[in-house]
Design a protein around this nucleic acid. Structure first.
Lengths: 337, 337
DNA sequence: CTGAAAGCGCTAACAT
DNA sequence: ATGTTAGCGCTTTCAG
């Protein structure tokens, strides 16, 4: 059986209270006593039981992270970011995927209901504002990643609008493309909206229009870009550039264009958003917008820890509650450069 | 404050013992009493505190998963597999990345030392056999994934040899390539060894040789395939096919070949191992061997749960302790098909 | 079938 | 500076 605090106390000839003090660096302990306790801990290879400590202190030193179930390398980067922030602070990471089950079965809510975690990071999941509210009201800090529910909750987002603008400007101003089309992601996501808005703004600022038939619907997933592009290729006037809401669809679109006997970027330029590892390997290499995914996770984890450590401290509320991390265009060949 | 078992007991007019019984479906409880308790639980939105339960029962209903720190989509699939196995059994998943720190700082060992988890899944990490032994001796079941330390520990591996053979046969028998070269992964990994052994066996069986200069060293990571291929391209007699130990290097090798003014697969065929999402997008699409990564994770999680539930039961030892999951060649264009 | 009570291993007052 | 003790919320005997 693993050694307990009693074993340590006995071996060091002190009470468990003293052992607890040296473990937690609380109060003053006589240097000599401390050394004796430390020695006993080493001798016994003692490691405080996390559950007992959590039960007594009402702190678990673990962060909960909820991610969608979809199989997207994107989220893994978020996980890595949160994990590193957590483990640097000696916190553990409890992971839950959002299940496919109907919203009624929100199993991940158990994480906090059962006292498992000190804070939660919700990344890109479908969640109702009132669910988040419920968690917060139980005193569990929540941090959101790529997920904007417009409440007073700390939120980390990639700068979709800024990145979209930079890319749109590259297309319209530098390359002087006049007929830019857009392949959308799922319509309800803010990312998609922001990117589309950016394109539209830039076009307008340059006296150009984004006609309705140049906005075709995709869903971010494989193949949807292909189908969307096919529809564009049936138009009487072809676009000279296509901005896809993500890389996956941009790559699909390139395929459709090639199969149509046209060339990327000579006939039609294509750009995406995300900067997947894949992007640099396709031919022509895809021009896209890099998203700081790892950083999103890291900052979110960091923020969660900060809130935990300032709980009850009013100044914590002074922190901004929506942070945009910069995105940056990655210029490769598919834009015509 | 969240409701406790006392609140439920009071509201149902029973003792906490009875509440505990209905929660855990232990012993018999009078149907009427049970219903009253259940109702109280619903009324109060009661959820048993996981820490308290863990402390009292010495079971945490959580699995620990340790993965390497490297940023490889491969591991994410393992994570998904384990997570789904765990959550299907109402278990939580505690994740730890192996730190870059020296081996002395094995932080993930805390997971079990501190009573955090009921079992551990170690995936593809660097670990000493005696460390695993230590965990097992503490009574924590361990399951290994893509990691073979040759002890009596349940281990899930992809069938590297089988997949390697199938691919080698495709090259040598079907395509009749006579000069097949191999780009290695890091030498110490069993995956790499098995794949190389398979190639060598198939070559010999067909009266062919694998000359030393046709085995060039890579390290699985980006760019290493490129450099390895360059060395092959300097040889007086060029290979007519190259088998890379993974897709990443195969793709790099294709680049090197093209830059050398040769064509894939007309001048030199190239195949890989892994079946990354990327593989189908490069041109020509990469012929490779699919690894059941998600399945490895899922089975490992499943096995961990099984062992937990048969603890102390001798029959548990009857299970095979090394399981090969089938790999399958995915024939695309880069092999010449 | 149910209640009472003794822990599980630790933290955090409260004493001294 | 250190010891004592009452919980934290639950499971699990042991009685009845």
């Amino acid at each position: 059986m693993a050694a307990t605090i009693f074993d340590v106390a006995k071996r060091a000839g002190v009470s468990i209270g003293t052992v607890s003090r040296v473990i937690n660096n609380r109060d003053r302990v006589h240097p000599e006593t401390r050394e004796r306790v430390l020695q006993a801990i080493r001798d016994l290879d003692y490691h405080a039981n996390a559950l007992a400590r959590g039960l007594a202190s009402q702190q678990t030193a673990t962060l909960g992270l909820v991610i969608p179930q979809v199989n997207d390398p994107f989220f893994f980067q978020v996980v890595r970011g949160v994990e590193e922030a957590a483990s640097a602070a000696n916190y553990s990471l409890l992971i839950a995927s959002q299940s496919r089950l109907p919203a009624s079965e929100r199993r991940y809510l158990h994480l906090f209901r059962r006292g498992h975690v000190d804070a939660m990071v919700l990344a890109s999941i479908e969640v109702h504002a009132h669910e988040v509210q419920e968690i917060v009201e139980q005193g569990i800090p929540v941090v959101l990643v790529q997920l904007d529910i417009g409440r007073n909750i700390p939120t980390f987002l990639a700068d979709n609008y800024g990145g979209g603008r930079a890319m749109a400007e590259h297309l319209v101003v530098e390359h002087q493309y006049r007929r830019v089309a857009y392949i959308t992601g799922t319509d309800h996501t803010p990312d998609n909206r922001e990117r589309l808005r950016a394109l539209r703004d830039v076009l307008h600022e340059n006296g150009l229009d984004l006609p309705g038939e140049y906005v075709v619907e995709g869903d971010y997933l494989r193949d949807s870009g292909y189908r969307a592009m096919q529809r564009l290729l049936e138009l009487p006037t072809l676009p000279d550039a296509v901005f896809a809401a993500n890389d996956q669809m941009a790559i699909d679109a390139m395929m459709a264009i090639r199969e149509h006997g046209l060339s990327v970027p000579d006939d039609i330029a294509v750009v995406g958003f995300d900067d997947l590892p894949l992007a640099s390997y396709v031919s022509p290499p895809l021009t896209t917008v890099h998203q700081p995914v790892y950083e999103l996770g890291w900052h979110a984890g960091q923020m969660a820890l900060e809130i935990i450590h300032t709980q009850g401290d009013r100044s914590a509320l002074a922190a901004p509650n929506k942070l945009l991390l910069p995105t940056s265009p990655v210029i490769r060949r598919s834009c015509g450069c």
